[in-house]
Each structure stands twice: as structure tokens, then as C-alpha cells.
């Protein structure tokens, strides 16, 4: 395969990937209700369809509808300059942890995000602390560390782009569990 073909193929592949992201974006965002315009991009491409399986699978596991709802809660918000998981989010985090323990082939990414104020790289560090806090709570249930990867986007992917109100900032400060392909 010569260079031209490779580039052409990759471009077509890339376009398809982006298109795939467009069409499936709705699924994952529907699942956690937040993220709207901020998510979407190719950043979530590979895991999107499996993400729906992840949610649906919980029902199939017979973990009960109540727990299924908790499983679907995969966005957790944080107070200003804080990285501790709020009490109200603990049951959902733990439900997702239990699911991972029961499904050792499932892998997730925990994304950490901040509001847009302050220094970008410092916010990257804050975002990782938020993702880390979710992971630490999951580990109390015996989640295998190899099933989880952390990525911090800092303020690069706000939940409310170009939103500059306190309410917008509150939506921005979040950690999100993003299911990946089955191992």
C-alpha cells in the first residue's frame, strides 16, 4: 500500500469515525444526561456503542432496576476547588464499581473536568484529582485497577461551552465514567 492510499484510507476512516461519533453521541449523553455539547467528539468514538451495552447489560445481570438506575449515573459534580466525591454520588459510584468487579472484561475511562477559571495546566491537575477520587472510591469495592484508565481534560471540554455563570461552572466541574470496549 503506497503512502497516498494509506493517507486516503485513513482520511476516509477518520471521516467515518467522526460521523460515527455524531450518530452515537446521543446514546451516551442520554445515559448520563449531562455533557451535551461538550462531549460528542471523536474522543468518545471507540467506546460509544459498547457504552450502551454496558448500561443495558446491568439489567441483564439481574442487579435490579434500582441499581440499574444508579449505574446510569456516570457524571459526578464537584464543589469549587474540591476533588472529593459528594455524598449524594457515592451510591452511583459504588454501583458502577460493583458492576466492574462483576464484569472483569469491562473497561472504563474516568474523565476529570474543571470549570474554565484559572490556569489551564493547573486545571488539568485538578481534573485528574477528581477522576482519581472517583477511582479511589471504586477501589474500596475491589475494582481491578487494570479496568480503569484516567484522563483529565481540565477545562478543555466544558459541559457548557461559552457558559460563564456560576450554574455553568457547576456543570463543568465533573468526573464522568465513560465505558470502553469489552476487554
Amino acid at each position: 500500500m503506497n503512502l497516498k492510499t494509506v493517507v486516503k484510507t485513513l482520511f476516509i476512516f477518520g471521516t467515518m469515525t467522526v460521523l460515527a461519533a455524531c450518530t452515537t453521541k446521543h446514546g451516551i449523553n442520554g445515559a448520563n444526561g449531562v455533557n451535551g455539547a461538550a462531549g460528542g467528539s471523536g474522543a468518545q468514538t471507540s467506546g460509544l456503542s459498547e457504552g450502551q451495552n454496558f448500561g443495558d447489560g446491568s439489567g441483564g445481570m439481574g442487579t435490579g432496576s434500582g441499581q440499574g438506575n444508579l449505574l446510569a449515573q456516570r457524571t459526578y459534580h464537584f464543589a469549587f476547588d474540591r476533588s472529593d466525591v459528594q455524598e449524594s454520588d457515592r451510591p452511583a459510584v459504588l454501583a458502577n464499581a460493583d458492576y466492574l468487579v462483576a464484569h472483569p472484561n469491562v473497561k472504563i475511562i474516568i474523565e476529570g473536568n474543571t470549570d474554565p477559571r484559572g490556569s489551564r495546566e493547573y486545571n488539568i491537575a485538578l481534573g485528574e484529582r477528581r477522576a482519581q477520587a472517583v477511582l479511589a472510591l471504586m477501589e474500596t469495592r475491589g475494582v481491578n485497577r487494570d479496568q480503569v484508565r484516567l484522563v483529565s481534560y481540565g477545562d478543555e471540554r466544558p459541559a457548557v461551552p461559552n457558559g460563564y455563570t456560576e450554574d455553568d461552572y457547576q456543570q463543568d466541574r465533573r468526573a464522568v465514567i465513560v465505558p470502553q470496549q469489552m476487554g
Binding site: 467522526v18 461519533a21 467528539s41 471523536g42 474522543a43 468518545q44 471507540s46 475511562i109 474523565e111 489551564r120 495546566e121 488539568i124 484522563v151 483529565s152 481534560y153 481540565g154 478543555e156 471540554r157 465513560v178
Partner: peptide, 28 residues
């Protein structure tokens, strides 16, 4: 050009190269 965030461009002292962070495939 990327569907994922790009940040922190930084010039080499001779102005010929730029280091940056890119989040392709959800990895920094």
C-alpha cells in the same frame, strides 16, 4: 486539526518547533 482537545503550545528557542499536548484517542 483534531476532534480532541489540543493545548499548551510551547516554542523551541529557535522558533522552528512547537511542543504541545494533544488528547487524541482520549489520552494526553
Amino acid at each position: 486539526v483534531s476532534p480532541d482537545p489540543i493545548m499548551s503550545p510551547s516554542w523551541s528557542p529557535d522558533g522552528r518547533r512547537i511542543a504541545y499536548v494533544s488528547f487524541e484517542h482520549q489520552r494526553a
